[in-house]
Design a protein around this nucleic acid. Structure first.
Lengths: 238, 238
DNA sequence: CGGCATCCGGGAAGATACTG
DNA sequence: CAGTATCTTCCCGGATGCCG
């Protein structure tokens, strides 16, 4: 939410006015004051796997215009959810990075996703970003089925690379970092949507030829794919 | 989100257009299409402890105007998050009630609240509804400290009554139902804000005389109050 | 190109008044 | 009490342009 101060010079004093806040002590209401504006939570989502640049965010959030992105980044920075950082030379580009508290918003995103996956209106064939599909793995993984031994999975979506490590001994069962796709015991290269179709839509690998390349032992690929599933949809006449 | 169809009679055909959706397969994005509109999630929150009437919702959501409430209720009904029900005669008043899936949204509200409670901008002295404070108990309870034996706590906020049962053996540790305040082993009667000050603000009972009446054994009241606490705030220079 | 300001059109939210 | 109608305000999204 805005919560910006507006100087009101009708007299002598500058009166400050809060705009469109919920003005409610309920924690949920305050959360919406912080990330309830359109696109705000989607921006946090895109930063959830590490810092990114202005242009990266624009590219993965189609429909979000530059001026709104600028405004949201400013609001989120003011509210301590993210910080602007300048990478050291020679890169010296500006990136946006969640604060420790910003990263703590992941359960919000997970619960929203878990709940909405049951909606009859949820269409898994729509466009999806690389970060989103990886976060969905962290949400939807069957934690009790990870099994032994640990293994790693590489992902490459265009120029974006990730490496996920699956380990039944780790509390989250799955840890994702940027880069090092090639180090994975298995690997997926292609569009995030094709990966979603393969993992969640049970579309066979052959049907995705061209859109998705799968690398590594077939047994391990199958073991990975079996870890994920979508919940039952709500029936329209309940 | 709206997602309403708009007939566009510029020619002969009626073209339908979706408005302001995220158009994203990410579950979180779809969740925001469902409950991302202003006030939508707050309405769901107010229904989380059972069905309520139009006027009840208005009363507990100050700032929400009637036309917006009408629109949100319509959207939420269309999306199967709630249903309109007519109570049987002689009451035969209309109430709004969450569907089973609607009730499943509680973890979303809990995670939002848990996260926002750490915000430096969170002001627990703002107005709060009875439902909100009871939901906050369900969110913030220290589950490993409920202890034995089970007991029950009554609440009365004006004409609104609730009974909460605390039982270490129950998976949620705390179950809330409407009515029967007097059945509680202990009871709180007064404004939700005064209760919040007592439980979360550690304001002593005496300082709240007039705003909050506490009934029952002091030991049990203390045992109840010790179950709750707010998380550490984020420090502005992190 | 990245970041940000500005103008503008459309549409959602807010306030108020009105009706059954 | 439960909504509907109307008017206003302002947020969102697109386009353009400035500056580093």
């Amino acid at each position: 939410m805005e919560l910006e101060k507006i100087t009101n010079e009708s007299e002598s004093g500058a009166k400050s006015v809060r705009k469109r806040g919920y003005y409610d002590a309920c924690g949920m209401a305050h959360a919406l004051d912080l990330v309830g504006d359109r696109w705000a939570l989607a921006i946090v989502r895109e930063l959830m796997l590490g810092p990114r640049r202005f242009g990266d965010l624009r590219a993965d959030l189609p429909g979000l215009s530059a001026n709104v992105l600028t405004q949201r980044l400013g609001d989120l920075e003011r509210d301590l959810i993210l910080v602007r950082r300048k990478l050291p030379p020679p890169a010296h580009v500006q990136v946006y990075e969640l604060t420790a508290w910003g990263y703590e918003a992941e359960p919000i995103i997970q619960e929203l996703g878990r709940w909405a996956a049951r909606s009859p209106g949820h269409d898994a064939t729509l466009p999806i970003s690389g970060v989103s599909i990886l976060l969905s793995f962290r949400t939807m993984i069957a934690r009790d089925r990870v099994g032994e031994p640990p293994f790693s999975v590489g992902f490459r979506f265009g120029a974006e690379e990730y490496l996920a490590r699956l380990d039944a001994a780790h509390p989250d069962r799955i840890v994702v970092e940027r880069g090092a796709e090639a180090e994975g015991d298995i690997g997926f290269i292609g569009a995030p949507n094709a990966l979603a179709a393969f993992i969640y839509g049970d579309v066979p690998e052959e049907a995705l030829a061209g859109a998705l390349t799968v690398r590594g032992k077939a047994g391990l690929v199958a073991r990975f794919a079996r870890l994920f599933g979508l919940p039952e949809k709500v029936r329209p006449k309940e």
